[in-house]
């Protein structure tokens, strides 16, 4: 059935079953492939998007549950925190294979919107839902701290 969602500042109408995860709506219906599939069970965070500014795992969010919430993906994430996070990611060359990095960045941006200067424990809490098999964790931590510094 048709669903209209608010996505990246625009309205999009898609015709899918009610239980279709937002992830597959983004990727297959709307061709927004920056958001990745990694596990399908909200364990790896590769599919992280923002729903009204909060990080959510789109692989486990049925389209019928999105309602009127504003969805933001890696394709359109913006604002000072996003700019700072992406600049620090680039400066530190965080990515390796890069597949998880959309999700990492979405989680990091949400963290910095919530907490200006996160402690190590706060970074752990906010980022431990995002798996990186390449092991870019030390650089992710450094990049978040670097981004926080640049926002002060």
């Amino acid at each position: 059935m048709p669903y209209t969602i608010r996505l990246d500042g625009k309205q999009h109408t898609v015709d899918v079953d009610a239980d279709t995860p937002l992830l597959w709506v983004l990727r297959d219906s709307l061709n927004l492939t920056g958001t990745k599939y990694g596990c399908g069970v909200a364990q790896c965070g590769a599919c992280t998007v923002h729903m009204d500014g909060q990080p959510v795992r789109s692989c486990s969010l049925p389209i019928s549950a999105v309602g009127n919430s504003e969805i933001t993906t890696i394709e359109s994430v913006s604002g000072p925190e996003a700019a700072a996070v992406q600049a620090s990611w680039l400066k530190i060359d965080v990515p390796q294979c890069g597949y998880c990095q959309s999700g990492q960045i979405m989680s990091a941006v949400a963290l910095l919107k919530e907490i200006k200067v996160p402690t190590d424990a706060e970074i752990d809490a906010a980022m431990s839902g995002n798996i990186c098999r390449c092991g870019t964790y030390p650089r992710i931590r450094n990049a978040i701290k670097d981004a926080a510094k640049s926002l002060i």
Binding site: T33, G34, Y37, E75, L90, D93, V94, G98
Partner: peptide
Amino acid sequence: SRAKITGTERYTQ
């Protein structure tokens, strides 16, 4: 890196 932090790197998926 730039492609990988903007979601524009193209993987098989």
